[in-house]
Amino acid sequence: MVIVRNPPWPGPQAERQSPGPRVKLGSLIPTMAPGHPYVRIADLTVVYRSGAGHEVEAVQSVTMDLPRGRFVALAGPSGSGKSSMLYVLAGLLRPTRGTVSVDNNDLTSMSADQLARYRCANVGFIFQSFQLLPHLSAWENVALPMIPLGVTASQRRTRACKQLSSIGLGARITHKPGELSAGEQQRVAIARAVINSPTLVLADEPTGNLDAANAALVADEMERLVRDLGATVVCATHDERVASRAQVVARMDHGRLVEQS
Protein backbone atom coordinates (compact mmCIF):
# COMPACT_ATOMS: atom_id res chain seq x y z
CA MET A 1 0.00 0.00 0.00
CA VAL A 2 1.47 3.26 -1.05
CA ILE A 3 0.57 6.34 0.84
CA VAL A 4 2.04 9.39 -0.68
CA ARG A 5 2.32 12.24 1.72
CA ASN A 6 0.42 14.94 0.00
CA PRO A 7 1.18 18.57 0.57
CA PRO A 8 -1.84 20.82 0.60
CA TRP A 9 -2.50 21.27 -3.07
CA PRO A 10 -3.78 24.50 -4.42
CA GLY A 11 -7.23 23.77 -5.79
CA PRO A 12 -7.42 23.02 -9.47
CA GLN A 13 -7.03 26.35 -11.10
CA ALA A 14 -9.93 27.27 -13.25
CA GLU A 15 -9.45 25.48 -16.53
CA ARG A 16 -5.79 25.88 -17.04
CA GLN A 17 -6.11 22.72 -18.95
CA SER A 18 -7.75 23.02 -22.30
CA PRO A 19 -11.33 21.80 -22.14
CA GLY A 20 -11.30 20.59 -25.71
CA PRO A 21 -9.64 17.23 -25.91
CA ARG A 22 -7.52 17.74 -28.99
CA VAL A 23 -5.95 20.97 -27.82
CA LYS A 24 -2.33 20.50 -26.95
CA LEU A 25 -0.65 22.24 -24.11
CA GLY A 26 1.84 23.61 -26.59
CA SER A 27 -0.81 25.23 -28.65
CA LEU A 28 -1.92 27.27 -25.68
CA ILE A 29 1.42 28.98 -25.61
CA PRO A 30 1.87 30.33 -29.08
CA THR A 31 5.50 31.20 -29.10
CA MET A 32 8.33 29.92 -27.09
CA ALA A 33 11.80 31.22 -26.94
CA PRO A 34 14.27 28.69 -28.26
CA GLY A 35 15.96 26.94 -25.44
CA HIS A 36 13.06 27.60 -23.14
CA PRO A 37 12.85 24.52 -20.96
CA TYR A 38 9.97 22.28 -21.90
CA VAL A 39 9.91 20.43 -18.59
CA ARG A 40 10.75 22.29 -15.39
CA ILE A 41 11.30 20.30 -12.26
CA ALA A 42 11.97 22.26 -9.11
CA ASP A 43 12.83 20.84 -5.69
CA LEU A 44 10.99 17.65 -6.56
CA THR A 45 10.68 15.25 -3.65
CA VAL A 46 8.76 11.99 -3.56
CA VAL A 47 8.35 10.20 -0.28
CA TYR A 48 6.73 6.77 -0.13
CA ARG A 49 5.32 5.78 3.17
CA SER A 50 4.72 2.09 3.57
CA GLY A 51 2.08 0.55 5.79
CA ALA A 52 4.63 -0.20 8.51
CA GLY A 53 5.37 3.51 8.75
CA HIS A 54 8.66 3.33 6.89
CA GLU A 55 9.41 6.33 4.78
CA VAL A 56 11.40 6.01 1.59
CA GLU A 57 12.58 9.21 0.01
CA ALA A 58 12.63 7.97 -3.58
CA VAL A 59 13.32 11.39 -5.10
CA GLN A 60 15.11 14.05 -3.11
CA SER A 61 14.95 17.72 -4.04
CA VAL A 62 15.60 17.23 -7.73
CA THR A 63 15.75 20.39 -9.79
CA MET A 64 16.14 19.94 -13.51
CA ASP A 65 15.07 21.50 -16.77
CA LEU A 66 14.58 19.53 -19.95
CA PRO A 67 14.57 21.15 -23.37
CA ARG A 68 11.88 20.54 -25.95
CA GLY A 69 12.39 17.93 -28.62
CA ARG A 70 15.28 16.02 -27.08
CA PHE A 71 16.05 12.43 -26.34
CA VAL A 72 16.75 12.36 -22.61
CA ALA A 73 18.09 9.30 -20.87
CA LEU A 74 17.46 8.94 -17.14
CA ALA A 75 20.23 6.69 -15.90
CA GLY A 76 21.13 5.37 -12.51
CA PRO A 77 21.23 2.24 -10.43
CA SER A 78 18.20 0.33 -9.37
CA GLY A 79 16.17 2.13 -6.74
CA SER A 80 17.60 5.52 -7.59
CA GLY A 81 14.15 6.99 -8.28
CA LYS A 82 13.97 6.93 -12.08
CA SER A 83 10.51 5.38 -12.30
CA SER A 84 9.22 7.72 -9.64
CA MET A 85 10.40 10.67 -11.71
CA LEU A 86 8.60 9.34 -14.78
CA TYR A 87 5.36 8.73 -12.87
CA VAL A 88 5.45 12.29 -11.60
CA LEU A 89 6.05 13.63 -15.12
CA ALA A 90 3.12 11.54 -16.34
CA GLY A 91 0.87 13.02 -13.69
CA LEU A 92 0.31 9.56 -12.25
CA LEU A 93 2.07 10.31 -8.99
CA ARG A 94 1.72 13.46 -6.93
CA PRO A 95 5.06 14.66 -5.61
CA THR A 96 5.40 15.17 -1.91
CA ARG A 97 7.13 18.48 -2.42
CA GLY A 98 8.25 20.70 -5.24
CA THR A 99 6.77 21.65 -8.57
CA VAL A 100 6.70 20.10 -12.00
CA SER A 101 5.57 22.01 -15.01
CA VAL A 102 5.34 20.80 -18.56
CA ASP A 103 5.08 23.46 -21.21
CA ASN A 104 4.47 26.03 -18.46
CA ASN A 105 1.55 24.07 -17.07
CA ASP A 106 1.88 23.24 -13.40
CA LEU A 107 1.01 19.58 -12.99
CA THR A 108 0.85 19.89 -9.23
CA SER A 109 -2.18 22.15 -9.39
CA MET A 110 -4.26 19.94 -11.66
CA SER A 111 -7.18 17.79 -10.57
CA ALA A 112 -7.17 14.06 -11.25
CA ASP A 113 -9.39 14.47 -14.28
CA GLN A 114 -7.26 17.32 -15.60
CA LEU A 115 -4.18 15.19 -15.20
CA ALA A 116 -5.89 12.39 -17.10
CA ARG A 117 -6.68 14.76 -19.95
CA TYR A 118 -3.12 16.05 -19.86
CA ARG A 119 -1.84 12.49 -20.15
CA CYS A 120 -4.21 11.66 -22.91
CA ALA A 121 -3.33 14.59 -25.13
CA ASN A 122 0.32 15.17 -24.25
CA VAL A 123 1.96 12.11 -22.78
CA GLY A 124 2.82 8.69 -24.13
CA PHE A 125 4.01 6.11 -21.62
CA ILE A 126 6.08 3.06 -22.54
CA PHE A 127 6.56 0.35 -19.91
CA GLN A 128 9.20 -2.27 -19.44
CA SER A 129 6.53 -4.99 -19.41
CA PHE A 130 4.55 -3.45 -22.28
CA GLN A 131 1.26 -3.36 -20.33
CA LEU A 132 -0.89 -4.25 -23.29
CA LEU A 133 -4.42 -5.42 -22.47
CA PRO A 134 -4.33 -9.13 -23.23
CA HIS A 135 -7.93 -9.43 -24.40
CA LEU A 136 -7.63 -6.68 -26.97
CA SER A 137 -6.04 -7.07 -30.38
CA ALA A 138 -2.98 -5.07 -31.38
CA TRP A 139 -4.99 -2.38 -33.11
CA GLU A 140 -7.50 -2.16 -30.26
CA ASN A 141 -4.65 -1.65 -27.81
CA VAL A 142 -3.17 1.06 -30.00
CA ALA A 143 -6.58 2.71 -30.38
CA LEU A 144 -7.28 2.88 -26.63
CA PRO A 145 -5.87 6.38 -25.96
CA MET A 146 -8.10 7.81 -28.69
CA ILE A 147 -11.28 6.81 -26.85
CA PRO A 148 -11.12 9.59 -24.23
CA LEU A 149 -10.47 12.06 -27.05
CA GLY A 150 -13.79 11.17 -28.63
CA VAL A 151 -12.32 9.91 -31.90
CA THR A 152 -14.94 7.88 -33.76
CA ALA A 153 -14.59 4.11 -33.83
CA SER A 154 -13.86 3.90 -37.54
CA GLN A 155 -11.27 6.68 -37.29
CA ARG A 156 -9.67 4.92 -34.37
CA ARG A 157 -9.34 1.75 -36.37
CA THR A 158 -7.96 3.50 -39.41
CA ARG A 159 -5.39 5.47 -37.46
CA ALA A 160 -4.33 2.54 -35.29
CA CYS A 161 -3.82 0.30 -38.32
CA LYS A 162 -1.87 3.00 -40.09
CA GLN A 163 0.34 3.47 -37.05
CA LEU A 164 0.99 -0.25 -36.78
CA SER A 165 1.78 -0.51 -40.49
CA SER A 166 4.26 2.36 -40.22
CA ILE A 167 6.30 0.35 -37.71
CA GLY A 168 6.13 -2.82 -39.77
CA LEU A 169 3.34 -4.55 -37.84
CA GLY A 170 0.73 -4.26 -40.59
CA ALA A 171 0.34 -8.04 -40.67
CA ARG A 172 -0.25 -8.20 -36.93
CA ILE A 173 -3.11 -5.79 -36.38
CA THR A 174 -5.66 -8.36 -35.26
CA HIS A 175 -3.24 -10.41 -33.18
CA LYS A 176 -3.67 -10.51 -29.42
CA PRO A 177 -0.56 -9.60 -27.36
CA GLY A 178 -0.16 -13.26 -26.42
CA GLU A 179 0.36 -14.04 -30.09
CA LEU A 180 3.17 -11.54 -30.51
CA SER A 181 6.87 -11.71 -29.67
CA ALA A 182 8.25 -9.48 -26.94
CA GLY A 183 9.78 -7.12 -29.49
CA GLU A 184 6.51 -6.90 -31.40
CA GLN A 185 4.59 -6.29 -28.19
CA GLN A 186 6.87 -3.43 -27.26
CA ARG A 187 6.44 -1.90 -30.70
CA VAL A 188 2.65 -2.16 -30.32
CA ALA A 189 3.06 -0.46 -26.94
CA ILE A 190 5.11 2.30 -28.57
CA ALA A 191 2.46 2.71 -31.24
CA ARG A 192 -0.12 3.08 -28.47
CA ALA A 193 2.08 5.63 -26.67
CA VAL A 194 2.46 7.85 -29.72
CA ILE A 195 -0.98 7.44 -31.33
CA ASN A 196 -2.16 10.82 -30.01
CA SER A 197 1.08 12.53 -31.15
CA PRO A 198 2.26 13.32 -27.62
CA THR A 199 4.81 16.03 -26.97
CA LEU A 200 6.26 14.11 -24.04
CA VAL A 201 7.09 10.42 -24.33
CA LEU A 202 8.08 8.67 -21.11
CA ALA A 203 9.71 5.27 -21.30
CA ASP A 204 10.50 3.15 -18.24
CA GLU A 205 13.17 0.58 -19.08
CA PRO A 206 11.60 0.03 -22.50
CA THR A 207 14.36 -2.37 -23.50
CA GLY A 208 14.54 -4.22 -20.20
CA ASN A 209 12.69 -7.26 -21.50
CA LEU A 210 14.18 -7.26 -24.99
CA ASP A 211 17.22 -8.74 -26.70
CA ALA A 212 19.87 -6.51 -28.20
CA ALA A 213 18.33 -6.43 -31.68
CA ASN A 214 14.89 -5.49 -30.43
CA ALA A 215 16.38 -3.00 -27.99
CA ALA A 216 18.10 -1.30 -30.89
CA LEU A 217 14.78 -1.16 -32.78
CA VAL A 218 13.12 0.49 -29.79
CA ALA A 219 15.94 3.00 -29.49
CA ASP A 220 15.61 3.75 -33.22
CA GLU A 221 11.92 4.31 -32.71
CA MET A 222 12.52 6.77 -29.88
CA GLU A 223 15.05 8.70 -31.90
CA ARG A 224 12.53 8.87 -34.70
CA LEU A 225 9.90 10.30 -32.31
CA VAL A 226 12.24 13.10 -31.39
CA ARG A 227 13.22 13.77 -34.99
CA ASP A 228 9.83 13.43 -36.70
CA LEU A 229 7.36 14.42 -33.99
CA GLY A 230 9.55 16.90 -32.16
CA ALA A 231 8.63 15.07 -28.99
CA THR A 232 10.63 15.15 -25.81
CA VAL A 233 11.52 11.59 -24.92
CA VAL A 234 12.52 10.76 -21.37
CA CYS A 235 13.79 7.24 -21.09
CA ALA A 236 14.72 5.61 -17.80
CA THR A 237 17.30 2.95 -18.58
CA HIS A 238 20.07 0.77 -17.28
CA ASP A 239 21.08 0.02 -20.82
CA GLU A 240 24.21 2.00 -21.64
CA ARG A 241 23.68 1.36 -25.34
CA VAL A 242 20.37 3.16 -25.14
CA ALA A 243 21.74 5.89 -22.90
CA SER A 244 24.61 6.49 -25.30
CA ARG A 245 22.15 7.41 -28.06
CA ALA A 246 20.45 10.07 -25.92
CA GLN A 247 21.18 13.74 -26.42
CA VAL A 248 20.88 14.46 -22.73
CA VAL A 249 21.82 12.04 -19.97
CA ALA A 250 20.64 12.69 -16.42
CA ARG A 251 22.10 10.42 -13.79
CA MET A 252 20.37 9.72 -10.53
CA ASP A 253 21.59 8.04 -7.40
CA HIS A 254 19.69 7.49 -4.17
CA GLY A 255 16.97 9.84 -5.30
CA ARG A 256 19.34 12.65 -6.18
CA LEU A 257 20.28 14.05 -9.53
CA VAL A 258 24.01 13.55 -9.62
CA GLU A 259 24.90 14.48 -13.15
CA GLN A 260 23.34 16.03 -16.21
CA SER A 261 25.08 16.30 -19.56
Binding site: A116, R117, C120, A121, L149
Partner: peptide
Protein backbone atom coordinates in the same frame (compact mmCIF):
# COMPACT_ATOMS: atom_id res chain seq x y z
CA UNK B 1 -3.27 0.93 -17.84
CA UNK B 2 -6.39 2.83 -18.87
CA UNK B 3 -5.56 5.55 -16.34
CA UNK B 4 -1.99 5.64 -17.62
CA UNK B 5 -3.06 6.16 -21.22
CA UNK B 6 -5.34 9.04 -20.29
CA UNK B 7 -8.74 7.71 -19.26
CA UNK B 8 -10.17 9.81 -16.43
Amino acid sequence: VLLAVGFT
